[in-house]
């Protein structure tokens, strides 16, 4: 890869603020782009002005605001927009936050442009002119390094892979409207309805630095889980059993088919650690497990494991943390 800008898709909330992992991607992009600079892609009708201060702090030079009448929530339309932004920026590397919808756009972009695509990456470097991605695979049990041999690389990056840091000097991001030629085929899918999920008041599960998870052992009572999550400033997650039982919403389900998390700290309470769940959390930095069953498989991967009653251990830990924090 020569000195070309790095392009980052700027995922944002309805109020125009950047999703937390985007700052991590911008930090990563800045390291890789050097003097060529980091450029953003703004997809959606939301007001980019709300994000400009954060983009300036990250040193973003240009924001390509996709100008189209069609809904960019359709992955084919987003791919049309990213294709236009690639051409406009001259970038050879596009970074997206790892999410199902971004992976859809990434796959389309790769088929259309001949780019190589790597998903769920937790580190990136440039070696001998090639983008080399680091990722954890097979439910967190293996690590790989994967080089992109095509001239263009499309990479989806997991949240919490890097620590977001502001640029040494802030920039004055230029917002440029980018006309998007939407292919006729891109609008064959109709977006009949889209409902944004209401925030929980806690950090977003997929990108939280701390996640406290309740499983079967809670027997539906998440009060201890929520209390510890709030003391730790973390998000609340759940196992498939807990969501299937209706104890908590499906959007809280962590696992290889639900939300994949890799927080700095994962606390599993009453979580057995079935392989389907481990596939969604095993790349976490530090793993704490509290379970009354000493044979629970989660103890095989726990850094700190307690065989005990979660309704005794969690409140005691929360109380002690409050005391220590004064």
């Amino acid at each position: 890869m020569t000195a070309t800008p790095v392009l980052v898709l700027l995922d944002h909330a309805a109020d125009g603020t950047l999703r937390p992992p985007v700052r991590e991607l911008l930090t990563l992009a800045r390291e890789l782009a050097g003097d060529a600079g980091v450029q953003g892609v703004w997809a959606g009708d939301e007001d980019v002005a709300a994000a400009v201060p954060a983009l300036a702090a990250q040193g973003v030079t240009t924001v390509h605001r996709l100008a189209t009448d069609t809904d960019v929530h359709l992955s084919a339309v987003l791919a049309d927009g990213l294709e236009a932004a690639l051409a406009a920026s001259g970038a050879a590397l596009v970074l997206l936050v790892s999410s199902f919808e971004n992976k859809e756009a990434a796959a389309r972009l790769a088929v259309r442009t001949g780019a190589g695509v790597v998903t769920d990456v937790d580190g990136l470097e440039v070696q001998a002119g090639r983008v080399v991605a680091h990722k954890t695979v097979l439910a967190g049990t293996w690590t790989t390094r994967c080089a992109v041999s095509a001239p263009t690389a499309v990479v989806t990056v997991k949240a919490n892979s890097v620590v977001a840091q502001d640029a040494a000097a802030p920039s004055s991001p230029q917002v440029v409207d980018l006309p998007v030629e939407v292919r006729a085929s891109s609008t064959r899918v109709r977006l009949v309805e889209r409902t944004e999920l209401a925030g929980s008041g806690r950090p977003d599960l997929g990108s939280a630095h701390v996640v406290v998870v309740g499983g079967r052992g809670t027997e539906g009572d998440f009060s201890a889980v929520e209390e510890l999550a709030d003391v730790l400033g973390g998000a609340v997650g759940a196992t498939r059993v807990a969501t299937d039982e209706g104890w908590i919403g499906h959007d809280a389900q962590i696992g290889q088919t639900g939300v994949t998390v890799s927080p700095r700290l994962y606390v599993g309470a009453g979580v057995s650690g079935a392989v389907h769940h481990r596939g969604g959390m095993q790349a976490s930095g530090t793993i704490v497990a509290v379970n009354s069953d000493p044979d629970a498989p989660i103890f095989e991967i726990a850094d700190f494991g307690v065989v005990g009653d979660l309704f005794a251990v969690l409140p005691q830990a929360a109380a002690e943390l409050r005391r220590l924090q004064g």
Binding site: T141, C146, P294, G305
Partner: peptide
């Protein structure tokens, strides 16, 4: 293929683990 795996390694087991019974 547009991507090439350069290296693959089994992750080492976690170290300094604490396991206790309450």
């Amino acid at each position: 293929a547009r991507t090439e795996v350069l290296e693959a390694a089994a992750r080492p087991p976690r170290e300094d683990r604490v396991l206790l019974t309450d």
